[in-house]
Amino acid sequence: MKLKFLHKLLISCLLILILALLCFYYASNYEKHLQIPSYGAILSNYPLGEVVHVEGSVVNIYPDSYNLIQNYQGLTLMINVLGPSPAHLGDHVSLLGVLGPSNQIVKVQEIRVISGWKWEFGLLRSFLALIFMVIIFFYFWKFNFKNFEFRRR
C-alpha cells in the first residue's frame, strides 16, 4: 500500500509521540526501579550503608584509597573508594560497594576496570563504524525527494 504524504506525516507524528511517552516514562521511573541504587539515589536520599552502583574515571590514587569522578546530569561527583586501587589514572571503573558517609565507598563487593586506552579505543572504533555505516548506507540507498522516501540505487 502506498502511503500518501499526509498519512506518512500522521503516522510519523504518532510514532514520535509514542517515543516521547516512552522516554518520559523511562526517565521518571527508572530510578525507582533500580535494584541497586546509583547516583540519582545518592544525590536525593543518600542510602547510607546500602550497596550502590557507581562508576567513573580514576582521577586520584592514594595508598589506601582512590577517587572516581563522574558527571551526572551536569553535576561533577567525586566518589572516594577505600582500599588499594586496582586501576591506573584515567581508567574507567564500575563497582558495587557499600556507601559510607561523605561520598565514600567503604567496602567494594564487585568491580570492573576498563583501562583508559581501551575505553577510548572502543569509542574510536565505534566512531569509525558510524562513518563506514553512513557511507555504505548512501552507497546502496538514495533519498527520493519527490516521493519523500529512500529507494535502492
Partner: peptide
C-alpha cells in the same frame, strides 16, 4: 527493544 522497534517503524515509513 520496544523503543528501538518504534524507532525502526518510524524510519521504515521513509522506505519504498
Amino acid at each position: 527493544p520496544l523503543a528501538s522497534l518504534v524507532l525502526a517503524g518510524l524510519l521504515s515509513i521513509f522506505f519504498k
